[in-house]
Design a protein around this nucleic acid. Structure first.
Lengths: 184, 184
DNA sequence: AGATAAAAAGACTGATCGGTATTCTTTACT
DNA sequence: AGTAAAGAATACCGATCAGTCTTTTTATCT
């Protein structure tokens, strides 16, 4: 099956870039870690940047699917789901392989706002915002736009604190703050 | 004056690394942008990593001094100063050269928790936490440790949102949330 | 001013970068 | 089975990486 070969490459490259960073990881390392030869890789992707973009697209898809599914499993009402986002994040943080948000890393390494990796990272955050806004509107909470923006700030902050490991339970702290916002 | 030459190198290197990233910026670029020859640079620093560490130390010093000073200028009481942190952050975000937090970038590029750049970044956040905790304790607010952890999450989240430019006024959103936390 | 020492400039090193050309292996069809 | 066509493995390319060595400049002291 041809397409699965490509997907396998993207999935493995995702792991390698996530662990090692984008610039610091050379294509030779991708070859070594995936077991796929350079020719085969460049048969699927024109440049390293193209591969990175495919990786980011895959990460976007996987992460959003996982997060939204987990939120709906952990929360009953729409308002509950918004709060449950932080429980889901907490599960993510506790995974041994957790190394922070790939899109935060991407904008850190590709700082030009016109770079496709930067733009895609902004899009990813935008799609999450859109989804949260839908939930906030369905629930009858006041000022849904404002609420969502503040929840997003809490989410990003919790992810960062988790990566720095400077706060023992960032998801829980963010969750309590989110509760406060929703109750207000 | 000898030491000022070294400081000038560190200050200029800081700019270049901040704009271009750590791995993506080669030493030749540092030479070009600073006008200081490679020999002179390597006379002061044994390796590129050593230079990067000096840059991070300088950034830590400059940023904390600026932030704490600005907080005390913008806030009267200790509790006010905690809230005013977000006004100061807002000023930072509006600087045209703003490109996010250098320490977030550092942990994104040097992911190994044992790497000196990672450790120094954690230290930086720790020093800020310590200062905020001092303020929270002097003010008679309840649960100062918890409050500070949540304020830090808001701070990190606002910085990230500012870098992504996904939220129009992240400092203001974070500030309002902080008010809520302090009032609670 | 001239000798000497310190420092900086820039050519250069092996290694590695992203990417390609050539060789080799595998597959598919008659 | 034999042959052609497709795909992958690897040797290889110029460019650039971090870092050094040699040469030239600059500064100091008499």
């Amino acid at each position: 099956m041809r397409p699965s070969k490509r997907e396998e490459l993207v999935n493995k490259a995702l792991d390698v870039f996530y662990r090692g960073g984008f610039h610091a990881t050379g294509m030779d390392m991708i070859v070594e870690e995936t077991g796929i030869s350079k020719t085969a890789i460049y048969n699927h992707f024109r440049t390293k940047d193209d591969l990175i973009l495919a990786v980011l697209r895959r990460r976007d898809e996987v992460f959003r699917n996982w997060l939204f599914k987990r939120m709906s499993e952990l929360g009953a009402s729409e308002a509950d789901q918004l709060v449950a986002m932080f429980d889901a994040l907490g599960e993510w943080f506790r995974e041994p392989s957790f190394k922070g948000c790939m899109f935060i890393k991407a904008v850190a390494e590709f700082q030009d706002p016109d770079h496709p990796a930067f733009k895609h990272s902004v899009e990813h955050k935008g799609l999450i915002e859109k989804y949260l806004l839908g939930l906030a509107q369905k629930s009858k909470l006041q000022h849904p736009e404002t609420l969502v923006k503040r929840l997003l700030i809490l989410k990003e902050g919790a992810i960062n604190a988790a990566q720095f490991r400077s706060i023992p339970a960032p998801a829980e702290e963010a969750k309590e703050t989110a509760r406060l916002l929703i109750a207000a």
